[in-house]
């Protein structure tokens, strides 16, 4: 009890407040020492994050204001300050809007896909017996651990135009037009193919999170609902889902953030953005502008736009997380 009384003002009063100056108990001394120790323990992470995140971010914003290409990088031409020039060029470019639309549409499909598959599987896993449940988890964790590059090559092989298993099976089942069908030629089938792979490796996170959430719901509540005559579907919809809403929000936002940043799968599966860039998403677009186009300034401007978009999502995320933290 006494320790509580002495530590309570510690947390509330800022150090150096007039009342704390005089009578300093040993407890308070250790509190100040703790702040110093904390600074020491936090220093490595702080230095690292400043060196490889904060400083590059500052440079990114700076670069985006310049005309910075191959000539400038090699020192052959002076840096030319453009101000917001890169941004006005970017926003005036129809291609950018197409890529932005691609990114949002593609991310939306991937998010909905992973959520749907993940939730269905989580509900399923909570209802079946040990063996099928273990099988489900093993399959899901296996897909989750597969490197994106390896997963992409396997999916490409499965859906190969001439030799892929999928085309052979489909045409074998009597769907003749699928023989020799190119999945990567058309913009939408190419996106669908990549989305299939992305969902494949990202639904396990949703599934595992939701499963843990379902398991955390007290059994009595579900039993009470079924005693009152609610069907399994009704119990899921009216009892479980509202209780899982906070978790669902977190899983959704996390998926949005991941799927917005997809790079590897698009880069590998559509060979760097598809035919004539039809499958570009913002991440790959920024990379191609910067490296293939040697236009580092423009690439940086796209990076800034991307960062701002994700920052908005992040702020929403943190606010929601704080909200759920208070309610639980």
């Amino acid at each position: 009890m006494t320790t509580e009384l002495t530590t309570e003002p510690d947390a509330k009063n800022p150090p150096g407040a007039p009342t704390t100056r005089g009578a300093r108990r040993p407890r308070r001394g250790s509190g100040n020492g703790q702040a110093r120790a904390a600074a020491l323990y936090l220093a490595p992470a702080g230095i690292l994050l400043i060196a490889v995140m904060a400083y590059p971010l500052y440079q990114l914003v700076q670069l985006s204001l310049y005309e910075y290409g191959q000539a400038q990088a090699s020192g052959g031409a002076p840096l030319e300050f453009l101000g917001l020039g890169n941004y006005t060029t970017l926003l005036g470019d129809g291609r950018f809007w197409m890529v932005l639309l691609n990114t949002c549409g593609f991310a939306a499909v991937c998010v909905l896909g992973s959520l749907a598959v993940g939730i269905v599987l989580a509900v399923l896993a909570s209802r079946v017996r040990w063996l099928p449940r273990t099988l489900l988890f093993l399959a899901a964790l296996g897909a989750w651990a597969t490197p994106a590059v390896a997963g992409s090559t396997v999916w490409l092989f499965l859906f190969d135009q001439d030799f892929g298993l999928v085309n052979e099976v489909l045409s074998g089942l009597g769907w003749q037009s699928m023989s020799g069908f190119s999945w990567t030629y058309d913009r939408f089938t190419a996106f669908a193919l990549v989305a299939g792979e992305v969902v494949w490796c990202s639904f396990p996170f949703v599934m595992v999170t939701m499963y843990a959430g379902i398991k955390a719901v007290p059994n009595e509540i579900v039993e009470a609902a079924s005693l009152d005559g609610a069907s399994a579907w009704r119990t899921t919809r009216s009892v479980l889902l509202p209780m899982l809403r906070p978790l669902l929000v977190i899983a959704t936002i996390q998926s949005i953030i991941w799927d917005f940043k997809i790079f590897t799968q698009i880069y590998v599966m559509t060979d760097g953005g598809g035919i004539a860039g039809q499958n570009l998403v913002l991440n790959v677009y920024a990379y191609q502008e910067a490296f293939a186009g040697s236009n580092y300034g423009m690439g940086s401007a796209i990076g800034v736009v991307m960062t701002v978009l994700l920052l908005v999502i992040t702020v929403i995320y943190l606010r929601l997380q704080r909200g759920t933290g208070e309610s639980t």
Binding site: A45, L49, V52, M53, Y55, P56, L57, Q59, L60, L63, A73, I257, F260, K261, F263, N283, A286, Y287, A290, Y296, G299, S300, I302, G303, V304, M306, T307, L310, I313, T314, Y317, L318
Partner: peptide
Amino acid sequence: LSLIIATSMFPGISLIVPLLRL
């Protein structure tokens, strides 16, 4: 803690150009 979590949402790709320069 919030700041550290926020960095996990950062698009890694946008750091490539500055990091490459560095």
